[in-house]
Write a protein that binds this DNA or RNA. Sequence first.
DNA 1: CTGCATCCGGTACGATACTG
DNA 2: CAGTATCGTACCGGATGCAG
Lengths: 117, 117
Amino acid sequence: MASLQKNYQCSFELTMDLIGGKWKLIILWHLLDGAKRFNELDKLMPAITQKMLTTQLRDLEEKGLVHREVYPEIPPKVEYSLTERGRSLDPILHDICKWSTDYANANDITIGCNKEH
Amino acid sequence: MASLQKNYQCSFELTMDLIGGKWKLIILWHLLDGAKRFNELDKLMPAITQKMLTTQLRDLEEKGLVHREVYPEIPPKVEYSLTERGRSLDPILHDICKWSTDYANANDITIGCNKEH
DNA sequence: CTGCATCCGGTACGATACTG
DNA sequence: CAGTATCGTACCGGATGCAG
């Protein structure tokens, strides 16, 4: 795993580097279910492009939150799963999900798909 | 408060709109201590520019997470504090802080200032 | 002291097409 | 199936200066 040797002034800076951006939380959330193939993730997130999915997954892999398992088959098969450290985000992800759902309810914001775990 | 009428497909999308970006978590974290003046926040975050501080505070205010109190004095005095909903992020912020600190320790990443609460 | 105005560059993000 | 390759854009975030 590549080490991130930037000078972080604050742990939240590091946090945003790790799980910031538009898609990372959603990907991690889906992977809480268990390992998923590239195409499965793609279908679970209709709005994401393949390019972004690739980028974000590689990012998460580099940071040690996601494991990438390549099966040398034809047709190709690649499975993504959470590492132990990735899985340690579980309670935080649930809390965030609950918090934002509360916020949405309190402000008449509708959310299309709110998959429960 | 302005209502956010976008079509959110996922609560994490909403979350990133609310507390995404480079500075919002840090600002909220500092405000957990209690109300702070503009200049205090500025000093607490040496790296932020005044423009960004203004922008982010207005953003958080618009979303109902931060309250802005203007005292009509000369010289001007403006205090920022957390709303009740902003304060409801408290446990999440602490969890995130702990999680990223763990991550940093496990990966030999040094963090300059890790203010504890 | 607390901002706002202006300008500007990098990059995060996206659309589309193509490939082993 | 699981990705690249290209190209394009929007806007976040930064630098600097000015104002009430």
